[in-house]
Amino acid sequence: MAELLQFVSSGLTVGAIYALVGLGFTLIYKASDIINFAQGEFVMLGGMMTVFVAMADVPLPVAALIAAIVTAGVGLALHRFAIEPARGASPVVLIMITIGASIFLRGIAQIVFDKRFHSLPPLFGSDPIQFGGAAILPQSLAVLGGAAFIVILLWLFIERTLLGKAVIATSANRLAARLIGIDTRQIVDFSFVVSAVIGAIAGILITPIALTSYDVGTLLALKGFAAAMLGGIGSAPGAVVGGLLLGMIEAMTAGYLSSNYKDAVAFLIILIVLIAIPQGLFGRAKIERV
């Protein structure tokens, strides 16, 4: 029982990070139909930049803030200078561009930062909290709380603000959005910025637990994408549930089987789910009437 609890807590923690990365995918996909494989680099930039700014004797919260702002700028630049000029190209070309951008960002990070692993001090100390026989890291709670906060904020934004509705409108019908005067390029700009910030926060939250280095983005992008697919690409609740589920599956496999198999088992399960329900758990089959 204590063991199970231990696995659940670590599964939820990484799952929350996957969920955030998946949300980043979802937001950009919704606004622009682009699958942004540079999403993982936002996570890397958030963590690495916080580490290196903090090294220059900047207080941690300020360093984190700077990292989030710079990452937002990187997200905006990615859209303006890499994606937007190729507007109208086929989706495959746009995906290739985001993959190219992610390789580029990794290369830059390797030069600007370094190739070592880095950590950050945990937010609330490192003494594990004993709970039902399991030892839970305070940082795990910070990750979960932070992720929950972002999810709620995003939900409120989409449901309660006109700008949020404009994002939905752009996603639902781009032509109509332009015809009512929505500058859809700005909406996509905005989705890249928000996705970048969400990625950066994920990176900052997870670094005290999982360490970071210039190349952590690749696998995270893959996991976040898998989470989004599992939940149904384009569905925000789907990305959250998909992420948490993926984290749980990994933690259970690692705990009860072997951590060597955790990625393989996770992807296998996703494959099976997607063969059974191709639109994902929360994806809507297209039955809209025209």
Partner: peptide, 19 residues
């Protein structure tokens, strides 16, 4: 028509006044 199908009647109208 090209309405925003998932959005409510009210939101479609509000968005009409986006500018």
């Amino acid at each position: 028509r090209q309405l925003f199908a998932p959005l409510s009647v009210k939101d479609n109208l509000r968005l009409g006044a986006w500018l």
